[in-house]
Write a protein that binds this DNA or RNA. Structure first.
Lengths: 150, 150
DNA sequence: TTAGATGCAAATAGTTTGCATTTGT
DNA sequence: ACAAATGCAAACTATTTGCATCTAA
């Protein structure tokens, strides 16, 4: 399987000394086709749709590897058993989660560049990415009556 | 059960219109005794140690409620089935997770006050808390050989 | 008094494992 | 060639559910 064009993420995989397998590349495809937010169940379904011969275990193993490589990050959008995996395009991701309706609002700028530098200097760590989540009410829920409305 | 002293978190529970039950207060005690980071399994064990008559389901129901109230936030420290619940003392929490050894380093200042305000103004949302996670290598792992050493 | 919360135990669902086989490099 | 990764299916584990009972307000 010698592709000519290798996506940046696949490249990151290869650079880290891991094999560029069909299963991993398919999971990557599923993630990239999902708009950046997918639950493990959705990923499983999408991978199966792309290639039904790929086993569940390989999907979980790939997600685990991608997490260690900061390609992806598991997080809880809606409290539930299944985590939502978010892609970390440039090592970071930011969003607002509505605690009422579970809607996710993404935003780009976080202004954390200088904080990153400060922490690296002060703590001696090497930072490769970050996830910033805000919680609250979206514009709709903010104005809605305080009733429970999942 | 009419306590004279009610912790700030218990107060938040009551204010939100929920009952101050023995099960909920015990889960809160477990969380507060755990130093701010506990997996669901550890919470379950601690609650059982405090009062073995409390059922598992009530613990999960309490954690779910606390999450909706931003008293606590589930997150993945180490990729695993069980989430780690972090207390959000003043509605926010920040830490660095070492992707090599899973160590957690907390830090206080995040300087996100003005970003919060900006987002509220720009998006019309009402924000009540946030979680900021950095990923990378801690000082030890940074200097260690690049071998797998989980 | 009574809506809301609980405990139980069974049902679900998500994830991991061990191992023989296959594959990327 | 061979270490690394896979697919399978069974084993596990964590979480949720339904419901009769209890309890905080």
């Amino acid at each position: 399987m010698s592709e000519d064009h290798i996506s940046p993420r696949a490249q990151r995989l290869r650079d880290s000394g891991h094999k560029l397998t069909h299963a991993r590349l398919t999971v990557l495809d599923a993630l990239e086709g999902g708009g950046g937010h997918m639950t493990s169940t959705e990923i499983l379904e999408q991978v199966e749709a792309l290639d039904a011969t790929i086993g569940r275990a390989s999907v979980f193993r790939a997600l685990d590897l991608f997490t260690r490589l900061s390609i992806v990050r598991p997080t809880y959008i809606h409290s539930s058993v299944t985590p939502t995996y978010v892609l970390m395009p440039d090592g970071h991701h930011h969003h607002i989660i509505c605690t009422q309706c579970s809607r996710v609002i993404e935003f780009e700028d976080c202004g954390l560049g200088s904080l990153t530098q400060t922490l690296e200097d002060r703590l001696g760590v090497r930072l490769t990415g970050h996830l910033l989540e805000f919680y609250g009410l979206c514009a709709d829920c903010r104005d809605a009556p305080p009733e429970d409305q999942d």
